[in-house]
Design a protein around this nucleic acid. Structure first.
Lengths: 216, 216
DNA sequence: CGTCCTATTGAAATTCTTCAACACTCGTGG
DNA sequence: CCACGAGTGTTGAAGAATTTCAATAGGACG
């Protein structure tokens, strides 16, 4: 982005904070602002009419939030952790895109990355066992919190951005099954849990093997 | 697209036919051509190391095939039915995009539509029962083969583009479970099956109810 | 007519869910 | 300072759904 464009954007920009599990937008709601995530994790969720929930995407800083050129949100957007976003009106972005096609290219690339993530996750939901799903989730979070992942064997610790309930909704399982599989990973010496949220990966090779796939 | 651009494109264009279940590209393969589907249905599939398969997307005419600006295919691309595509080199498209940003916009929109489809399907895979998944699949195919879908109660007949085995891989089930659920839908009078592939929707309201969601 | 391939059906086995009880943490107020 | 309650997570046992294993059916083709 060119400096005058950044200036233009910043003039219309608002920062906004959301508490964990606060709604950001809901399914079908009209959207007139886009946003970038500055901090925290955002979940995208769909509901069936009888209340079952599936989390269909997680977004991390500095992801873009919103569907360009789509008027409606197609799912609920909620803060998973505490979230800080910086939002701006649709027209501002649309105007910037007109001036600078490169910007649309970058949004297009993010859309493709999200599509890849979604398809990888379809494999997890459709074909993996509960144990493999939970291992895949920990692997997925580890990849996202530790952007500079070392090649092997480094012991890393991080905090899960999702509650057991959200993990269940992401993994297509129940909270009880998630909890049991976490316990098994701990008993197997693959991870350590100082509390329910704080994960230390003790054996990243076996964790990866437990996902049964080079998931991403 | 402007006439000179269409002419330019057609000069580099090759038509190619694939038999049902013939591979088009495979995971990790280098891609040097893009294509448009002229006829038929294409499936995008991922494999685990131990051979489990998940179909992560279906594409219909006139969808675009290939990941713009990505060098590698991230999954296997296979013909589901007999398929006719029209392919052209990457550079040709990249050149056209440079001249005409509107083209990238359209590809971006397709990517967003595919992302919506993928996320809708994540809900199906993560949270629906076998019966709901099979009903959702029939609904999904009905929507795609009958582009001008009438609002209600019209009885429509179509041919499933997927074998039971492919349906199972799309739905995250086994072929036996798919077969049993098809039988139940038939016995309930919701659909009729003249043979395993030929579906007549007898009661579209109850079919929709059986999907337990406004899936798309 | 036999063979291959796909699909269906049945019964047993397994995985995951449901239901239920209990543990832990964190605030609040007595 | 401790008790209480709400929220979150864990664990066990019974139940349900789906898979697995196995047998059979039907069509297409040589």
């Amino acid at each position: 982005l060119t400096p005058p464009q950044l200036l233009e954007l910043s003039k219309h920009t608002n920062k906004h904070a959301y508490a964990a599990s606060a709604p950001i937008t809901s399914d079908g709601e009209h959207i007139e602002r886009y946003a970038n995530i500055l901090k925290g994790v955002v979940k995208l969720a769909k509901l069936t009419s009888d209340g079952r929930q599936q989390i269909v995407g997680l977004q991390f800083a500095p992801d873009f939030l919103g569907r360009p050129f789509n008027k409606k949100s197609e799912f609920d957007v909620q803060a998973a952790t505490e979230v800080l976003v910086c939002s701006f009106p649709q027209e501002t972005l649309n105007r910037l895109i007109k001036e600078n096609p490169e910007l649309e290219h970058r949004l297009h690339e993010q859309a493709q990355n999200e599509l890849n993530d979604a398809r990888n996750w379809m494999m997890t939901l459709g074909r993996k066992t509960a144990a493999e799903r939970v291992a895949s989730f920990i692997q997925f979070i580890a990849n996202h919190v530790d952007p500079e992942k070392s090649p092997a064997q480094k012991i890393i610790t991080f905090s899960l951005p999702l509650s057991r309930s959200d993990m269940a909704d992401f993994l297509g399982l129940t909270i009880e099954t998630v909890s049991r599989q976490m316990t098994k990973l701990r008993q197997a010496g693959i991870i350590d849990l100082s509390d329910a949220r704080e994960v230390t990966v003790l054996d990243s090779a076996r964790l990866r093997a437990a996902t049964e796939q080079p998931n991403d």
